[in-house]
């Protein structure tokens, strides 16, 4: 009997240790990016957010990451505008007609889209929107990000819509509301926090993507923002390029940009936590 207890003790200790090992890296990543990035942002001050990065030869200048911030804001915003209506309407379809064949197909599709490598999305958008026009554009980057976002918005919205109590919906029909009114005023009204939560998670995802932008938005850092039909930078893209460059001061800019990305992500994450996914009655 002693050996059974001993095995149990060893089991408890090792599970606890392994669980700690599993979560330790995320704490270290947050810590490491903060100690490397925060001093850079503090040193740059306001300029870090408003200026363009220096050329590689100007080693004493820190400059800023304004093109990356502008590009990320623009492309994420446009991607949201494209993705949300499509994904929300598709999830309304799934929630309203749960037994329809198209619902089964779109559910399976969305699950597959979640697993599609984002670099694949990037090169397909390259083939469809960059090759024909012969130029990298911010719009192409936004379309690629929209494809990344759609399955997230779809999944969370459907979950939120399905969690609306039947009694609310039946009551709405009972007072003579039409189907469209029930959907848009009652079901979506009750589920709105869950829908917004899904959108927030999707935005956080899109904002943190690098691969879909490599060959669509491509990057441009000589001005803050050239317009939707010009190549565009993004925070992730800039980190990816700068950290691989041989220039020490570009590495520092990459760390500063990484810290900003981390702060943006943590903010969106906290917002999504405050929005409860399912309807509480």
């Amino acid at each position: 009997m002693v050996s059974r207890k001993l095995v149990d003790r060893i089991f408890t200790v090792s599970v606890t240790l392994l669980a700690l090992v599993a979560v330790l890296p995320i704490f270290h990543i947050i810590y490491y990016i903060t100690i490397k990035g925060l001093p850079v942002v503090l040193e740059g001050g306001v300029n870090f957010f408003t200026q363009i990065p220096p050329s590689p030869i100007r080693v004493n200048e820190l400059g800023g990451i304004a093109p990356a911030i502008a590009g990320t804001l623009f492309m994420t915003a446009v991607a949201t505008v494209i993705a949300v209506p499509i994904a929300v309407l598709a999830s309304v379809f799934s929630a309203e007609y749960p037994n329809h064949n198209l619902t089964k197909i779109v559910r399976a599709t969305s699950r597959s889209l979640l697993e599609v490598p984002t670099i694949v999305i990037g090169i397909v958008v390259f083939a469809l929107l960059v090759m024909p026009f012969g130029r990298f554009t911010a719009i192409a980057g936004a379309v690629a990000l929209a494809i990344v976002m759609i399955p997230y918005v779809y999944t969370y919205t459907e979950l939120a819509l399905l969690s609306v109590p039947r009694t609310y919906i039946e009551a709405a029909y009972g007072i003579g509301m039409k189907r469209a009114q029930v959907i848009y005023m009652v079901t979506m009204g009750v589920a709105r926090r869950g829908i917004v939560r899904g959108i927030t998670i999707a935005i956080a995802k899109a904002m943190g993507e690098t691969a879909p932008l490599l060959f669509t938005a491509f990057g441009a850092r000589n001005m803050i923002f050239g317009g939707p039909l010009e190549p565009s930078d993004a925070i992730t893209l800039m980190i990816y390029v700068f950290i691989q460059s041989p220039f020490e001061h570009w590495h520092r800019i990459a760390w500063g940009a990484a810290f900003l990305l981390l702060v943006l992500y943590l903010t969106l994450f906290l917002i999504s936590r405050r929005l409860v996914g399912e309807v509480r009655v």
Partner: peptide, 11 residues
């Protein structure tokens, strides 16, 4: 799960 993957890469 949601942390931007580039941050993992940088680390």
């Amino acid at each position: 799960a949601g942390t931007p993957t580039i941050l993992f890469g940088l680390w």
